[in-house]
Design a protein around this nucleic acid. Sequence first.
DNA 1: GTAGGGTTAG
Length: 650
Amino acid sequence: MSKFVLRLPELLGYFMVETMKSVTAKLKLFGPVLTLRCSYSSTTDQALLLNEFTRLCYQRDLPRALKVMDSLQSHGLWADSAAYSELIKCCLSHRAVYEGNLICRHLYRNGHQPMMFLVNVLINMYVKFNLLNDAHQLFDQMPQRYVISWTTMISAYSKCKLHQKALELLVLMLRDGVRPNVYTYSSVLRACNGMSDVRMLHCGIIKEGLESDVYVRSALIDVFAKLGEPEDALSVFDEMVTGDAIVWNSIIGGFAQNSKSDVALELFKRMKRAGFIAEQATLTSVLRACTGLALLELGMQAHVHIVKYDQDLILNNALVDMYCKCGSLEDARRVFSQMKERDVIAWSTMISGLAQNGYSQEALKLFESMKSSGTKPNYVTIVGVLFACSHAGLLEDGWYYFRSMKKLYGIDPVREHYGCMIDLLGKAGKLDDAVKLLNEMECEPDAVTWRTLLGACRVQGNMVLAEYAAKKVIELDPEDAGTYTVLSNIYANSQKWDSVEEIRTRMRDSGIKKEPGCSWIEVNKKIHAFIIGDDSHPQIIQVKRELNQLIHILIGIGYVSETNFVLQDLEGEQMEDSLRHHSEKLALVFGLMTLPSEKVIRIRKNLRICGDCHVFCKLVSKLENRSIVIRDPIRYHHFQDGKCSCGDYW
DNA sequence: GTAGGGTTAG
């Protein structure tokens, strides 16, 4: 047996040609090793062609390389399936869509059906290129489909959130008599729309004895958490003997997304104690948890660990959001401006963040920069833009963006867009136009839409319309305690005592209790909660004493409790609760008592701030020369020097 | 040999 090695001009690859029975050419192409085989003696022609083929591949000139492959074939040298697979991998790693298509056509030419393994590789390639239609076409053409082909398609649809499609394929797969395996289950679980889907799949998993697979488990944990079943998620998690980092990320992420930020942070501590290092996905969830609880100090602490991933897009987006939601706009702006890459989420986060914090003009300016940068806005971006308009009463701008969104960006208005416009029109005194728009909606208005109109009625003092809107809210969301209170107040104001009694009975009978007002403040990395009617805070007596003294001083400089605005506690704390001890006032006084004087006092609350507390905060900011930020469920109020960033328009 | 789990705006 003689053997010779041809050195390539680039010395990048090598191949050995063994005379006698077989020819093996190993070509080192961008890393992977490519093998071509033939069944009889090599010739000089083959050697030269192989040389040429390597050179072209190295130069990434795949069109010509494929032509050389044809010539090799006519010389009896066939690329095997592994060779094609390697070529496809090269296309994938270089995102070479055009070349990938060429290989596909090369494989299918003359009506030839490539072997199933290769079709699976091709389908996967199209999936990774986000060309799902092409992938599905190849899938449909397959004479037979085994579990990998099905799983590749199901996973593709799951990943791009075409959940219904993924589930439909699973049904077809089962009907075809193909049994799902751990790969199928782990990818289809995230497509579940409700717990009934999950329960069904879970049964299948247990029946097949696949529940110990770590991928299946983390997918289960994730879907349980996302569908609001944290107990189930925890029980699957606790049953695991070996977990790995990803499972921790699943469970922490699950709780962070499920408004259980405190549990998420507890689990994060456990994860660290167990010796796992927090990486991007973990830190992103931790940031989200901090965002949910408005824990600026803790978020800043997380930021220190993030510095090493300083150009991670998702982490930076989460960071911008955290700073915006914690009311620290300077930090948000700084992170945003230092980002080298910004996607639509980055821009939308910053635009909404500015809008929620009362910087509407800056938000609209940023939207212009976004457009110049070439990033295409999506419907979330437009929600942020309209939000900016509605919070600043920018009627003309609002109409312009609302009317042009379809034409300029191809985005159909949905409920959220209509909601912003109804808010904008209503609060600007154009309640008739708001109602007109509500009636023109292409989608059915929901409880949120009607609640928006109700909010506008509060500002305008339109009791008749408020009553109508409140009734609609209760019709659509019978559990909404706040709206019952509003309705009852409306009736009380017009002396309809029978109706007041009726509402109270209805609330009592259906066990609906009003959510008590609660405010949180972070002091020394610890959260302090102040809840109406709950005196469990260890310093509550001292806090109340200080508050009374402060109110006394404020009265001396002209403070009058705003108790006469009948609808003022719309979605806010009840009239019968003492205005004097509203939770944000308690939290504010606690902040004054405990935080150093240069620190901004940041408070998060569960209900909307009432008119009296708003006046109170403005006066305190001037009297004590403090910056105060209050985040309510809808927006933020930055108080400084006796003024609020909302311009008293909220 | 080809397929699978966790992270960001609303």
